[in-house]
């Protein structure tokens, strides 16, 4: 079994990715492919549920940086939720928590996306 598996699901308007395992030098390209796949399908409202994510390194964060502009251009967003302490710590250490919206739970993120959609309409 590989060090990283990424499942995905669409809930309401949000495309949710569930990375499971480690995003490191060996797996970062798999992670990039799964985000790129969402973008290729023009799913620009992306939530990464980090429930089962054990670790992410800076090149993993680099993947997020590499797609953020395109997502924002398409009026989408890239949100994060359910971070465990280790992962939150990594995001926080680098200051990512100031740049990316982080939700405690997937439900809260989905509710936030609904109110976003209402604001738009």
């Amino acid at each position: 079994m590989s060090e990283l598996q990424v499942q995905s699901a669409d809930k309401q308007l949000v495309h949710i990715l569930y990375p499971q395992g480690f995003i490191n030098a060996h797996t970062v390209q798999d992670f990039e492919r799964s985000i790129q796949a969402a973008i290729d399908q023009q799913k620009y409202r992306i939530l990464i549920n980090c429930q089962s994510l054990s670790y992410i390194n800076s090149s993993g964060l680099g993947v997020l940086m590499g797609v953020i502009e395109e997502i924002q251009e398409q009026s989408g967003y890239l949100w994060l939720s359910n971070m465990n302490e280790t992962v939150y710590h990594i995001f926080d250490t680098l200051g990512f928590t100031h740049l990316f919206k982080v939700f405690p739970s997937e439900d809260e993120a989905i509710r936030a996306s609904e109110s976003c959609a209402e604001d738009e309409s």
Binding site: N57, S58, G60
Partner: peptide, 12 residues
């Protein structure tokens, strides 16, 4: 690129 971008919030 991946590491520089991730480390310094650079998107290009």
């Amino acid at each position: 690129a991946g590491n520089l971008m991730g480390h310094f919030f650079i998107s290009r």
